[in-house]
Simulated assay, not measured.
Amino acid sequence: MERESWLQRNGLYLAWVVSLIATGGSLYFSEVKGFIPCDLCWYQRIFMYPQALLLGMAAYRGDRRMANYLLPVSLIGGLISLYHNIEIWFPKLGEMAPCRSGIPCNQDYLNWLGFITIPLMALVAFILIAGLLIAARVRNR
């Protein structure tokens, strides 16, 4: 009989906490600080917000099978976030296909320590959630 690691047992809870922090941070920046989200930010929100709800329900029920269903959501959101970061790192790329909402996707409202941006925080959140979901998912026996 194989023993479960601490990360396997608590991965859903930790992924839920990360998604709550990411969702709360997103809402703080837009609703409190008044930062208007660009198109790519909206797409990232589409993939982050449902995870806060679904991971909470899965963690409450102890349903680790949900990790298999939410992993693609995190990966797709992470790819969008990666593309958003590439647009910030290489601003000329953003000029080829500019955002339609009026807010440029290749600029960011904040830049902490010279490299921490909102899209980078979103990318880290998606990577953390995906890693925790991989650790928490149920192995087929």
Rank of each mutant, 00 (worst) to 15 (best):
M1C: 09
M1T: 10
E2F: 01
R3V: 07
R3H: 09
E4A: 11
S5P: 06
W6P: 00
L7C: 03
L7S: 08
Q8S: 13
Q8F: 03
R9M: 07
R9A: 14
R9N: 11
Y13D: 14
L14D: 07
A15H: 04
W16Y: 11
V17H: 10
V17L: 15
V18M: 12
L20S: 11
I21Q: 12
T23K: 04
G25T: 11
G25V: 02
S26I: 02
L27N: 12
Y28M: 03
Y28V: 02
F29P: 01
S30L: 05
E31R: 11
K33W: 11
G34A: 10
I36Q: 14
I36T: 15
P37L: 08
P37G: 08
P37Y: 12
D39I: 06
L40C: 08
W42C: 11
Y43T: 13
R45Y: 13
R45P: 01
R45A: 15
R45S: 13
M48F: 05
Y49E: 15
P50S: 11
L53I: 15
G56R: 06
M57E: 12
A58F: 12
Y60E: 11
R61N: 12
R61T: 13
D63R: 12
R65H: 13
M66L: 14
A67W: 04
A67F: 07
A67R: 02
Y69L: 13
L71G: 10
V73E: 05
L75S: 02
I76G: 03
G77Y: 01
G77S: 07
G78Y: 06
G78V: 01
G78I: 00
L79G: 13
L79N: 04
I80G: 09
I80T: 03
I80K: 00
I80R: 01
L82D: 01
Y83C: 06
Y83V: 03
N85C: 14
E87K: 01
I88R: 07
I88W: 14
I88V: 13
L93Y: 10
A97Y: 01
P98E: 01
P98A: 05
P98C: 05
P98I: 02
C99R: 12
R100L: 07
S101P: 07
G102T: 01
I103W: 01
I103L: 03
I103P: 04
I103V: 13
P104G: 06
N106L: 02
N106T: 01
Q107G: 00
D108N: 09
D108H: 00
L113I: 04
G114W: 00
F115P: 10
I118L: 08
P119K: 00
L120Y: 04
M121S: 09
A122R: 02
L123Q: 06
L123G: 07
L123N: 09
V124K: 02
A125W: 05
F126V: 01
L128F: 11
I129A: 13
I129M: 15
A130D: 15
A130G: 15
A130E: 14
L132G: 08
L133D: 06
I134D: 05
R137T: 05
V138C: 04
R139C: 04
N140R: 08
N140Q: 12
